[in-house]
Design a binder for these strands. Sequence first.
DNA 1: GAGTGGTCTAGACCACCAA
DNA 2: TGGTGGTCTAGACCACTCC
Lengths: 229, 229
Amino acid sequence: MTGPGWDAIRAEVLRRIRARDWRPGEAIPTEAALAAEFGCARATVHRALRDLAEAGVVERRRKAGTRVALQPVRRATLEIPVIRAEVEARGQRHGFRLIEDRDLLPPLPVASRLGVGADRPLRRMFTLHLADGRPFLHEDRWLNPAVLPRPAPDFAAVSVNEWLVTHVPFSAGEMSFAAEGANVREARALGVDLGAPLLVTERVTRTETQAVTLVRLAYAPGHRLQMRL
Amino acid sequence: MTGPGWDAIRAEVLRRIRARDWRPGEAIPTEAALAAEFGCARATVHRALRDLAEAGVVERRRKAGTRVALQPVRRATLEIPVIRAEVEARGQRHGFRLIEDRDLLPPLPVASRLGVGADRPLRRMFTLHLADGRPFLHEDRWLNPAVLPRPAPDFAAVSVNEWLVTHVPFSAGEMSFAAEGANVREARALGVDLGAPLLVTERVTRTETQAVTLVRLAYAPGHRLQMRL
DNA sequence: GAGTGGTCTAGACCACCAA
DNA sequence: TGGTGGTCTAGACCACTCC
């Protein structure tokens, strides 16, 4: 006496939305009604509708009910591995060089984006990542030294990127992409012309209590970032 | 007689992982054991752990149990609105111009990426999207005419992008980003120099039964794509 | 095989919020 | 204030997969 699975219900609801039985903006039946129709528990319907809500297909509010999204917002997810893993996943050998590493007072824009005072020095680091010995990615980082243990790790042996990912707790943050012309450091490190189009990503990460790092990653020309829709 | 909520359990498990009570690669207790410890139903623990698995913090396999992820893969999600909505969200007025629209036999790479025969013409369309009258994005599209109704919509009145999102059922697909130098069409349409760094995204979308479209979007210089971590 | 996560049930109570 | 989704329970069976 067990009804259809939640994925079957998800599929059927999706079918009706695509078939325009339920049109964008319209309310669809309540969980209780659908459970009765499909002959299953309300929890099963709930599981299916929650999944569709996460996918952006429907919008749900208590009391207001469930509506077909007016503009089905597509969400794409990007998996961000450790850079070493990213290189090795391409079947190449990863290496890196710590180009520069010093303490520096952050300029105001950097301090404010990290939410730290501009009167305390941060660790400023430049790293070049290599794939089979060829330039892969240039990393320009401001690191809050407060997140480091004492004594601090040897970032010539383990890349900052990898150390942070494996040792600093799950944190919140933002990330953005843009295309920019290579700056002087990037051009020299990656071996490209000044102003060559590079895919650049900027990330800010924080723990609950403090800023961790602000980093600008510039990929070597031709790099494509793959996402799942 | 109701125990802690699933989010409280999620938080506690996360705390123990961050505190290295449970180290990367190690198995954590079973759902049943955690339910007993926390004094709640197994379903509640399940809800919490499923959430952590989706976030990439733990890995779960039947029989093998739940392990702390060795390399916590970060997932960033990108929301992809209709281009009109994207412009309007910036407080600007959206407009567009259909630059060119004709039927053309696809070159082999295009046909194979879409999974259609190279012997049937596709719709080739170039559209320029405007924000407050200024170039915002150049759209270079191959469209499978089989997805269109008869008579076909008037793409001079509604942008292809918007029509597809609101009329073609939820579909699977891939997406990628890169930085590329502006090509001749893009340079002319966006009003930039040939070879200027542009953020370019390519999408292929399919329904369950057929290919829909392959599109290359080139954003005007300076555009940043924001993601949530 | 047997242990683990994945799912379903029938019921209950709660939180939210539009009417 | 009542209707809706969100959650929790105690139990059951199933599916996968490691041993």
